[in-house]
Each structure stands twice: as structure tokens, then as C-alpha cells.
Amino acid sequence: MGKNQHVTPNSNGTWNVKGEGNSKATAIFDTQKKAIDRATKISINQQSELIIHDRKGKIRERNSYGNDPHPPKG
């Protein structure tokens, strides 16, 4: 299982894709949608979790692409 990926805002209006625990962004995008698209691909490839933050930095969404501890029943 790889590092969880975070989509976070920058003060200049751009969006980071950043692996959890990394000091530098993996990529920087001008829109949140582009950042989410890239982070989703990385999360799927690494079987990790995607955490999307809003403009204020608060977590607004989480998606698991790896070992989901709570798989759906049935």
C-alpha cells in the first residue's frame, strides 16, 4: 500500500497533489479538478487513500482505492 494522496490548496489559488508525509508537492495544478484527477490516478496505482481538502484546508471528501477496512456487505 502506497502513501495516501492529499489535494490541498495553495495561497496563490493553485492546488497541490501531495503524498502523505512528503515535504514537497508531487504536482501543482491551476484547478482542483485537475489535481483530483491526477491524485485519483496515483491513489489507484498505489492502492492508497485520496483525501480532498476544501479551500480552507478542511477535509471535504475521502476515497479509498486500497485496503478498505470496511468493505460493503453482500
Rank of each mutant, 00 (worst) to 15 (best):
P71H: 12
K18H: 05
Q32V: 13
N4P: 10
H53I: 14
D30N: 14
A27T: 04
K18M: 01
T26A: 13
Y65N: 13
Q5Y: 04
T40Y: 00
T14I: 03
M1S: 07
R38V: 02
E49A: 08
N16G: 14
E20T: 03
K3C: 01
Q46P: 07
Q32S: 07
Q5G: 07
P9G: 11
N63C: 07
V17Y: 08
K34Q: 12
L50E: 03
K3Q: 14
Q47W: 05
R62M: 12
K24C: 02
A25C: 04
K56F: 13
F29T: 00
E20P: 01
V17C: 07
G13R: 10
T31L: 04
A39F: 01
K24A: 08
Q32H: 09
R38M: 05
G21I: 00
T40R: 03
F29E: 04
D37L: 10
G74K: 09
Q47F: 03
K24V: 00
T8M: 09
G13M: 11
N45L: 04
I42W: 06
P71W: 15
N67C: 01
P9I: 03
K56C: 07
P71Y: 13
K33W: 00
M1V: 05
K18I: 00
K41L: 09
N67L: 07
I36T: 10
A39K: 06
E49K: 14
K73V: 09
V7I: 02
G21E: 10
G13W: 10
Q47E: 14
D68C: 08
K56M: 10
T8Y: 11
N22L: 00
Q47T: 05
K33M: 02
Q5H: 11
G57I: 03
N22V: 00
G2M: 02
D30V: 06
N16I: 00
E61S: 15
K34P: 02
I52H: 02
N16Y: 12
Q46G: 08
N16L: 04
P72Y: 15
I42F: 06
A35G: 10
T40K: 04
K24N: 13
S11G: 13
R55Y: 12
A25Y: 03
P71S: 05
I59W: 00
H70D: 05
P72D: 14
W15N: 02
N16E: 12
I44D: 10
T26V: 06
